[in-house]
Nucleic acid binder design. Structure first.
Lengths: 187, 187
DNA sequence: GACATAATATATCATAATGATATATTATTA
DNA sequence: TAATAATATATCATTATGATATATTATGTC
């Protein structure tokens, strides 16, 4: 019974290991910095956080004083939680799960006009260009923090991966457009 | 009510647009050639195929003569199915959904020893190296088929994307190892 | 020839994950 | 002052995964 799913638990633990926070800030964090390699939905986050508390891996401290929104529930990791996280980090990571709808459409390209694919590729290139810039900006930020003796070297590493991924996808799309255009010229 | 899920239907249609086939062969096809950008489980494939028939987008022809396995159900796409596929191909593709467990572990790296991450990265590099070779092999195969006037140019494009993705991930992992090692040497 | 194992094939189920929506307060902008 | 954006929690129907059960045929090996 190898388990390849149910990673949300460890994501929450990893997030809380950094600092005590709310489900909302965890969601924002993942959206802003993890989007090129992970995503979580509220439907996973809130129930998972509750489970962590039930299992003794996290504790809550209600923070009604701040007055932010509807009253926040701040979660903190426990020693047992840190142990659980550390054990999981040692396990061999599972194969990645990926769904690129654009690639699917390209692979079914025979069922539409080349112009349709070229349009999708253009948007894809534009988006990836933007994301490369964002990732580079984030890496610069990490460099600035380092000068202030704040260590975010592992975050910087994942941002570097973002640069690699988004650049590769953009480069591929540029090449793909060229190949499709050449094929059309041959006709 | 924008729908961002439920793509399996179109994957089945795209597969059947190539040739009539069984749920099993669709699964194999996706595993062998689509794994770098898509995956489907039997739990999605079989119910989805049944739905396609119910909606008039595909028809079945039982093939009990072949004697392969437990008696196969061959699905074929209908004209309505081709129309549905074509309409979907025109729609702007949704943002990709990705889960790289390795990246997650790297981002939580502070909670373990650098050796643990270096080990994971080694395996990752080995796997991606192998996959780059596989993708290149597939592209060569496409070249050979082209000489026989069989057009698989869109499949070749997605294989090319595989080469770009896997190479980028390998290159990143090599760089990541270097950075982690340098950090350790500084101590 | 007997036997084990791999490949072919369909089906289902519990668990996991998504995307959408509902609700409510505070902060910001026009 | 009114509208909108941001903060915050929660739930639900739909979608997706991974595991397992079942059964036949093909292949390799002792």
């Amino acid at each position: 019974m190898k388990e390849n799913t149910g990673k949300s638990k460890y994501v929450m633990l990893g997030m809380l290991a950094r600092m005590p926070q709310t489900g909302y800030t965890i969601k924002k964090w993942i959206e802003n910095e993890y989007s090129h390699f992970w995503q979580e939905s509220y439907g996973q986050i809130y129930p998972t956080l509750k489970k962590l508390v039930a299992e003794g891996l996290a504790v809550t401290s209600k923070n009604t004083q701040t007055g932010n929104g509807r009253g926040q529930i701040v979660y903190s990791i426990t020693d047992a939680g840190r142990k659980e996280l550390s054990d999981w980090l040692r396990e061999e990571p599972e194969i990645e799960k990926i769904r690129y709808e654009l690639l699917l459409k390209v692979s079914f390209g025979e069922n539409t006009e080349p112009e349709v694919l070229l349009g999708h590729l253009d948007n894809f290139i534009r988006r990836n260009d933007k994301l490369v810039k964002e990732m580079n900006g984030y890496m610069e930020l990490c460099g600035q923090l380092k000068e202030q003796d704040i260590d975010c070297s592992y975050s910087r590493l994942t941002a570097l991966c973002g640069v690699y991924i988004y650049s590769a996808m953009r480069d591929w799309a540029v090449e793909a457009k060229k190949i499709i255009n050449e094929k059309e010229d041959d006709k």
